[in-house]
Every structure is written in structure tokens, then in C-alpha cells.
Amino acid sequence: MGLVLTAIYLVGMITSAGVGRFRAGISQGGRMSILTIVRSMPWFLNQMASMLLWPAFLGTWLARGRPKTPWQAITTGDGTIMIRRKTR
């Protein structure tokens, strides 16, 4: 039983990472560069928290009516990707 719960939790963590990347506008293929992570630190920390606590984040997201993400991927002049909060 513990193995099943562990497997479900790990699948949830992996899925959370994929969903976070997709919602921000990043492709699923490949690794993110260190420069992208450093330049997108607020998004990165939010992603780490949502991966570790994905059941709570999922419940909150559903309770709020599935709002759109506040994050957006932007390509800079030197070709790197940054994730910033959307400006309205």
C-alpha cells in the first residue's frame, strides 16, 4: 500500500512539473538552462513548491475555479527564455 501511495505521489510531482512548464509556455522537450532558472527565480521557486505540495496546490487551483496562470515565457534578445509574471 505504501508503494502505491509513493508511486502516486511521484507521478503527481512529475505531472506538476510538466503542467507548470506547459502553462508558462515552455516546451516539454529538453532541459532548461541554468540561465533560464536563475533569471526566472520566482517562477522556479513556485514550481518547486507546487511539485512538493502538489495535492494542496491542485485543491486550491480547483477551488478557485481553475484560473489561468500568471506566468509567461519570454524570449530575450540573446535567445534565452525567461519566465515572468504577465503584465496586464
Rank of each mutant, 00 (worst) to 15 (best):
G65W: 06
G79H: 07
G79V: 07
L3C: 01
P67E: 10
T80D: 14
F44A: 12
Q72K: 15
I37K: 02
M82D: 03
W61F: 09
R85P: 02
F22W: 14
Q28M: 14
T75A: 13
I26N: 00
V38F: 06
R88I: 10
M1C: 10
P67D: 13
G25L: 08
K68Q: 10
K68D: 11
K68E: 11
P42N: 07
A73H: 04
F57N: 00
R85N: 07
D78E: 13
D78L: 08
R84Q: 10
M1Y: 12
R39K: 09
G30D: 11
S16Q: 05
K68G: 08
A73W: 05
L10P: 01
I74D: 01
R23V: 06
M13Q: 06
L52F: 15
M48Q: 14
G79Y: 07
I34F: 14
G29T: 11
A49S: 12
I81V: 15
L35H: 08
T15M: 07
R66P: 00
G20R: 00
G65T: 09
S16T: 10
G30Q: 12
P55Q: 04
I34Q: 10
W43G: 01
M82I: 12
V19D: 00
T60G: 06
G20M: 01
A63N: 04
F22K: 12
R84M: 09
F22G: 02
V19H: 00
G65V: 08
R31M: 10
M41S: 10
T69S: 15
L62H: 11
M82C: 07
R31Q: 09
A63G: 11
I74V: 15
R21P: 02
A73F: 08
Q47D: 01
W43A: 00
M51K: 09
F22H: 12
A63S: 13
T69D: 09
I26F: 08
Q72F: 05
M82G: 00
A7R: 06
T36N: 02
Q28D: 06
T15G: 06
G77R: 11
M41A: 13
G2D: 05
M41F: 14
A56H: 03
S40Q: 01
W54R: 00
W61C: 04
M13S: 01
G30A: 14
M51R: 10
G59Y: 12
T6P: 01
K68S: 13
V4T: 11
L3V: 06
W71S: 02
N46D: 15
L5A: 03
W54F: 13
Q28T: 08
T6V: 14
T87K: 10
M1A: 14
